[in-house]
Structures are given as C-alpha cells and as structure tokens.
Design a protein around this nucleic acid. Structure first.
Lengths: 338, 338
DNA sequence: TTGTAGGCGTTATCAA
DNA sequence: TTGATAACGCCTACAA
C-alpha cells in the first residue's frame, strides 16, 4: 500500500496470506471460518489499522450504511436529543446519521422521501412525530427495503419498529398527583385534532380524573394548536370560568407558557391560585417564571433504543419499546392555597 | 435494464449509441463535448429518468457527496436552523447532510472527527460556533481534503470559508438605541472568556457606549457563563448597585432570562424600571414575560450561503460572508420611566 | 473451510 | 471529440 493511502482488503489479504474473500468473511463475521485463520486475519487488521471502505461496501451491497432521520420539526430540543441519542449508539460503527427535515403538508412529501431513500440507498429511517403517525409513509419506506423505526406517544406499530412514550399514563399520573395535592377543579388544554399525542394526552387526562374520582367540567376543557398563542387564548377563556379552576394541565409547554402569561397578567398567584403543568420539558419550561412543572420524555434513551432496532433488526424485539416519562417537579404546581 | 432496477450509465450509453465515458462527460459537464452528442445523451437521460448512483461515484472519486455538520450544541434552534438552511441549498442535488454532535472538551475530539471524515470520505464540513473557532480543527479538515466553511461571530477565516454575523456592530447598534431611548446607566452581562462571540459582543458594547458618549461603569459589567443561572447571579449583583442601571444588555437570551427573573423577583417593573436586551432570539425569548427584545442572527440565510460555499467552491467567494443581525423589538426594552 | 472469477456503477488513462 | 480498458474496494456465486 502507498504511504498515505489507507489499507484495503487486498493489503490485509496479502499480509495475512489469504484471499480477499477470506478477509471479507472475517469482516462480515461469517460463521464458517477456521478459528486460526480468523485470528490471523484479525491480527493483521489490527496491526495495519484496516477499516473497510463504506463506499465500496455500499456499492457492492446496493445499500448504504446511513440512517435517515425524517421529521417535521416537532420541537428543536427533541430533534437534537434524538440526534444525540442515535449518535451514541452508532458511534464506533460504520453507520452515519443523515437528516431530512420535511414539510408534512407538502403534496410531494412521499415522492421527496422516496427519492431521498432511493438515492442515498438508506439502510434505515427513523420517523419522528407527528409524521411517524403516517402509515402510508412507513409502508413506503419498507417497500423501499429500508428498516423503519417510528417514535411516538402510543403503540403505532409492532414493537420491533417502535419506540413510544406512554403519554396516556404519564398524564393520568400527573393529574392524579394534582388531585392528591387537593385540587378539585382541574382544567385541560388539549392539542390539535389529528395528532396522536394530543389524543393520548386527552385520554390520560380522563383516566387521571376518573382515578381521582373527579368529574370533568366541559367548561374547563379547551383545545389549542400546540402554539404559544393558543395558550394565551385558552387562558382568556379558562380564567373567566366561574368558579375558576385551581389547576390546569396543558398538553405541551408552549401552550402552558401562554396560559401562564395570562394568569400572571390577571394578577393571579402561581401556584397559589392556579397551578400549571406542561408537557415536553422544553428549554422554555425551565426559563419561564415560575419554572414550569412538566412531563419529560426520556428522549435520548428512546433514541438509543431506536437506533439499536434500526442497525440490528435481529435484536430489535429485545430492545424496550415503551418508555415511561418523568414528571419534572418545578414551582408552577403545588397545593391550592386555602 | 431489468423491470424494477434503476437505469444505469450503461443503459443511457446503449440507448444513446455512445460510450459510457461520453455519458459520464455529460453528467460531469465536461467542456470538450460535441453539442449534438450532448443533447442526444441528455434527451435519453431525461427520457428514462436516469440518476447517477452516488455510491458508485463515491467509490470512483474516493469522495462522498456528503456534507458534515459538526457542532457542540450551541443552542438547539441554531443547530436546527442551520440544518434547514443547508438542506434548502442541497435539495435536488446529490448531496446529503450528515450530522455529528461532538464534545469540544473531549481529548479525542480531533481523532474522532478525523476518523469521521476519513471513514465517510466527506466532501465538506461545516463548523458551528464555538468549535468553529478551533483553527487546529479547521486545518486538519482541510488536510483531509475536505472543504471547510466556518460559522462564527467575526471574521475567523477567509471569506470563501466563512459565514459570520457581525455581532460587534449589532450590539453597538442595540446599545446606541438604548441611549436614544434615554438610558444613561447601561449595564452589560458578558459571555464566558474564550468564546469569540463573547469577545465581539463586549467590543460592540464598548463601541455603542462610546458612540452614545456614555462612560462605562465597571460596577455594571458582569461576566456570566451563557447559562441561565449566571443570569440570575448577575441580576443579584447588578440590581444591588447604587444608583442602579436602567438597562442591561445580556450577551445571550438564557442569561437575559435569568436576569429578568431576578428583576421581577425584586418587584421591578420591566421595562419601566429596567430594560433588558438579549441575544440569539431563542424560543424562550418569545415565551418569557415580558417578551424579550433580542438580537437575531439570520441563521437560515447564513446556512444557505455556507452550503453554497461548500458544494461549489468556485463560487464561494461570490457568496456573502458577513451577515447583519436584526434587533427583534419586543416589550422588554423601552424608554426608562421618569 | 477457502479461493477464483466476475460484478456493483462510476471515473481515469490514454490512445484513436 | 470520443471510446476501450482498467481501476475504485468490496461482495456473491460457484468451485475446489
């Protein structure tokens, strides 16, 4: 091999006194190999620091060692957390992570993604919510010979292809905790229709109220868009109800922040007069005043598990697929003042 | 070609009645080509929908059509904004974006990145602050045959390899604007030593004060860590100074949010008694109360320009490299109350 | 258990 | 201006 060229499979074969194919078998952990041959080859590999060329493998196998992360911007922290989690898993493997933000309302969504997968010959893709809820998309990826793992807030798929948080239970637990603190009039700000996460959190709210033996007052049920402004609007309405709620569960932090602003605008004491719980644990949650109590997905652990399912489909079923979320207790929720 | 197989260069050559090499020349826009031949080949390409296989090109050229995004998590919005900007530029090209979060304090930082670039045979890399300030890293990438573009807050490199915001001027303008509002006692929360952005913003503060004909009171100069908690601490000290400042420029939003909390804790009216300006326009800035006036980088435009410089080095010099930031005026800064 | 020949889809070399 | 032939580094099929 030339001085600065990287060693190839031919160098290894020559130095080990075997054929290329034998080296190839070692690399690919073929079972039918003499142990002595294997160790001899492995020794040479270690000695000269040989690393298989992923481009050549990609060409020969017609499959690239790339994992695609496809998402429509759920929230920045989540996306970055997922990227870091995937990377922790694929570090020291030949895989790399390629990202693909998309617009889920684009009419060419499927064509774009198909082209992306075909062109890059992706090994697998990870779908983030909310587009992970698109069954047609998942099917298409599979037809393209791509392993798929979906992340979501409920069991969207078989466990080999899924990592999900149990939003329903997390919300139920949080609401029940509010009842234990002494809250009786608990309101809810739902997410937009059509989002699975929104649906699960609604069900969780109902579960929690039922478990606490509380009845749901329709006047305290609002629906938002997951955006800050809709939290403001929900605040306008909820805080005008008589008698007022003493606690609100918001289906995400952004709306919770909006609601909180309205509560402070109206001079309410938080959490004395009104407690607030959000969902997501975004950076904002920790930086608003008072700091927001919120539900947090174990994003990185989920992403690590998802990456395992992706690069090692045989082990996929043994990786956990349902993850429990934590309630991060800060100052925005406490017992109602007497 | 088989029914579901993608057409290859051979199919094009056969159908057009020319050699593979000629097709290759068309693909690569070789100048020495008969126009008639070229259009004949292009017609066939369009007809059968031929797309060159990136893996094969990568093998033959010993260079992959991948752009690496290397960063140490400056802030989530910035990283995602950059990803989107790069993607807008490389959409419909054969390039893909592969991400690599790193730990800038890791002793193996350089080795890790070297291995990453060599293994994936990256075409180019984009370095985000603060690791974009690492000259040794940039040099190494170049030695590896990788084009490099750095993003930063000042002229770190030649313009072909740089996109930078003019932080110094943006801060100076913001501070001057405060003076025009009638502020005389203006404080400053600096970022941590060793960050170029922190240094530039400090210089900008001095520039703005000088332009306004104001003197800097050392008691109103604090240094933070870019973290929320350091903003709280700065608030404790700055708000205890007598006479107090009427406005504060914080070198980032997170510290501004901390400072704001302290101000509200102490019962101060914002902006009446104390105005606050931050830097970055993070999601938090829009969601705290009152909404934070802040400086915003044109992240996406910068990322688009950077991607152009990366994939088209010949045009690199003609792309802009210095970008002006905007002051996003919200409610946290206004004239001091009389 | 190991090796040989040929192919994956493209580009480089060099001659025509 | 074009084309035949040999890389690029690995894998599959088949043979030994």
């Amino acid at each position: 091999m030339a001085k600065d060229a990287k060693p190839t499979i031919n160098d290894v074969a020559r130095l080990a006194g075997v054929s290329k194919k034998t080296v190839s078998r070692v690399i690919n952990k073929s079972p039918l190999l003499n142990d002595a041959t294997r160790s001899k080859v492995e020794a040479v590999i270690a000695e000269i620091g040989y690393v298989p060329n992923p481009q050549a493998r990609a060409l020969a196998l017609r499959r690239n060692f790339l994992i695609g992360l496809i998402h429509d911007n759920p929230n920045a922290q989540m996306v970055l957390g997922v990227q870091e989690g995937i990377l922790e898993t694929i570090r020291d493997t030949e895989f790399a992570l390629v990202v693909r933000p998309v617009d889920r309302h684009s009419p060419q969504l499927l064509d774009d993604i198909r082209h992306f997968i075909e062109q890059q010959r992706l090994f697998g893709v990870m779908l983030l919510p909310p587009i992970s809820e698109n069954d047609e998309l998942a099917d298409m990826c599979r037809k393209l010979g791509c392993t798929v793992v979906r992340m979501g807030s409920a069991a969207l798929d078989k466990s080999e292809h899924l990592v999900a948080s149990n939003d329903r239970q997390a919300v139920a637990d949080a609401v029940f905790w509010l009842s234990e603190l002494g809250h009786r009039r608990i309101g809810f700000i739902a997410g937009p229709q059509g989002f699975r996460s929104a649906r699960e959190r609604e069900l969780g709210f109902a579960d929690g109220m039922a478990r606490a033996g509380l009845t749901i007052d329709p006047a305290l049920m609002e629906r938002g868009t997951y955006r800050f402004e809709s939290g403001l609007a929900a605040g306008d309405r909820l805080l005008a109800v008589d008698p007022p709620p003493t606690a609100i569960f918001s289906s995400n932090d952004e709306m919770a922040a909006g609601f909180l602003h309205r509560a402070l605008d109206k001079g309410l004491k938080v959490p004395g007069q009104i407690s607030i719980i959000g969902f997501d644990n975004t950076a904002t949650a920790a930086h608003i005043w008072p700091p927001l109590t919120t539900v947090q997905w174990p994003i990185k652990a989920m992403a690590r598990a998802a990456a395992h399912k992706l690069i090692d489909p045989l082990e996929a079923a043994s990786q956990p697929s349902i993850f429990l979320s934590d309630l991060i207790r800060r100052s925005s929720a406490d017992a109602p003042s007497a």
